[in-house]
């Protein structure tokens, strides 16, 4: 069964209202559970409950007032695959940093983003990668004395 485009558009238009509504209800629920008031005064849950409640109410307001408005047109050409490439690269960088070491992770991140995702010429890729890895080591390790992870090479 295929979803008609009008229904898809309506669902997309509802997201900006639904998101704060659900998050707000989540905050309100947990706030109430933490306790809004104890014997001595305001409890740990007062602030989360109040901000969550406000967010849920605003989400509902957005849902009611803005869903009927036409969705704004997307600006310029979009490149969703590049976007996914960037997120994947960043996640891999974070997860491999301690295993491989920071400098090796930077080299891999740059090779992935510049050569595979952006498809830049190899000469530029290698120059930018080498320059970035060296300047990171110089700035963080030498100048700022930050202990970067060394990984297998430590």
């Amino acid at each position: 069964m295929t979803v008609p485009p009008s229904a898809r558009r309506a669902a997309a238009a509802a997201v900006p209202g639904l998101l704060p509504l659900l998050l707000g209800l989540f905050g309100l629920g947990f706030g109430l559970r933490y306790g809004v008031w104890d014997g001595a005064g305001p409890g740990a849950g007062l602030f989360p409950a109040a901000s969550g409640g406000a967010m849920a109410a605003l989400g509902l307001l957005i849902l009611v007032t803005e869903t009927s408005m036409p969705a704004p047109a997307a600006e310029g050409a979009t490149r969703p695959w590049r976007l996914l490439g960037y997120v994947a690269g960043l996640l891999a960088f974070a997860l491999l940093m301690e295993q491989l070491g920071a400098i090796a992770a930077i080299v891999l991140l740059f090779l992935w983003l510049l050569a595979v995702v952006e498809r830049l010429p190899w000469r530029l890729v290698l120059a930018v990668t080498a320059g970035s890895a060296f300047s990171t080591w110089l700035l963080f390790e030498r100048l700022l004395q930050v202990q970067l992870p060394r990984g297998f090479f430590g």
């Binding site: 960037y86 690269g89 960043l90 960088f93 974070a94 940093m97 920071a102 930077i106 991140l109 740059f110 983003l113 510049l114 830049l120 530029l124 930018v128 970035s132 990171t136 963080f140 930050v146 970067l148």
Partner: peptide, 12 residues
């Protein structure tokens, strides 16, 4: 070229 540089800076 700018984008990976910013990402690296943020990550480190």
């Amino acid at each position: 070229v700018m984008a990976p540089l910013i990402l690296m800076f943020c990550g480190i």
